[in-house]
Design a protein around this nucleic acid. Structure first.
Length: 289
DNA sequence: GTCCAGGGAATCA
DNA sequence: TGATTCCATGGA
């Protein structure tokens, strides 16, 4: 496989750390030179910022290299417009958007996003990354680049015969059964991912996702936001988002007592059809700053 | 030892 | 509908 390169002009809405450490993805790792290397579909790519350029280097096994990158990194979208809108809402949003100004929401594979966020339940990011890496190493395909081995995320058919016990050995904990059941449901076409991808009715897609084992409201919203489904109107609520929304807008003494419905209502009123983006800036800001 | 993590499912009122 | 409780695991 031949190494390829694609270079674009630097832009404000493209900071490596913001993109890869904002919690949307689990398969990108920082190198010693501060660049990041990751894998999606059958592509292994290193991204580096140098001077006034963003340099993508890697091997592409899924069609045209440039097109793959433009799609995956959402390069056709105008993030400045989105950030301006959010910044105008109030001072909180202005600060959080400024903090995460380099974020882009990746177009991640739907199947991979479903499985990854089932694993994310009541889990922490370093451990989620470890589990996904072990899963890929054991059941995915090996790709060698620069004398290093990378492993593709296993497909549904690659996980078809994996047992609950094998998942348990990989350290999935109580999520083992959920992963098994959801894989079977997709193999058996109880949920057809291609149909979800084509369905423009977000509510219908969400209902379908919720039938999968291990997919509740929060995981469903993450799938809708972070995968190629790309719905910016959803607002995933986890412990961090509950925390930051309570701190900024609700101010209850005990944030765990604030209902999801109340948070969702405020999010819709304030952020409307880009609530998902607002959520991501707020999440990243509160968790890192 | 205790608490916590990008929650969901089962159970009960 | 809404509130509790349990669920593995590993790091702080």
């Amino acid at each position: 496989m031949k190494e390829q390169k694609y270079i674009i002009k630097n832009q404000e809405s493209f900071e490596l750390k913001d993109i890869f450490d904002c919690g949307q993805c689990f398969r990108w790792n920082e190198e010693e030179d501060k660049s990041y290397t990751g894998i999606w579909k059958n592509n292994v790519v290193n991204v580096k910022k140098e001077n006034n350029e963003i340099i993508f280097t890697g091997i592409c096994n899924d069609g045209n290299f440039e097109e793959e990158i433009i799609k995956y990194f959402d390069l056709d979208r105008n993030y400045d417009e989105i950030k301006n809108k959010l910044s105008k809402i109030d001072e909180n949003m202005k600060i959080s958007v400024e903090y995460g100004k380099g974020i882009r929401i990746l177009n991640q594979d739907l199947w991979e996003t479903i499985i990854s966020f089932i694993i994310s339940a009541n889990n922490n990011i370093p451990r989620i990354k470890g589990i996904i890496e072990r899963l890929s190493k054991k059941y995915g395909n090996k790709i060698v680049w620069n004398n290093k081995e990378y492993y593709t995320f296993p497909t549904a058919s690659q996980l078809k015969d994996v047992t609950v016990e094998e998942y348990r050995k990989l350290g999935l904990g109580f999520r083992d059964k959920r992963l098994y059941e959801t894989t079977q449901m997709i193999i058996n076409k109880e949920v057809v991912l291609d149909e979800l991808q084509k369905n423009e009715n977000t509510k219908e897609v969400r209902e379908k996702l919720l039938t999968l084992s291990g997919v509740g409201p929060k995981v469903a919203d993450c799938i809708l936001l972070f995968s190629t489904l790309k719905r910016f109107e959803v607002f995933p609520i986890d412990v961090w988002v509950r925390r930051v929304m309570n701190d900024l807008y609700i101010k209850e003494s005990d944030e765990t007592k604030v209902s999801k419905a109340k948070i969702e209502k405020i999010a819709q009123e304030k952020f409307g059809d880009i609530a998902g983006l607002a959520q991501q800036y707020l999440f990243y800001w509160r968790r890192e700053a």
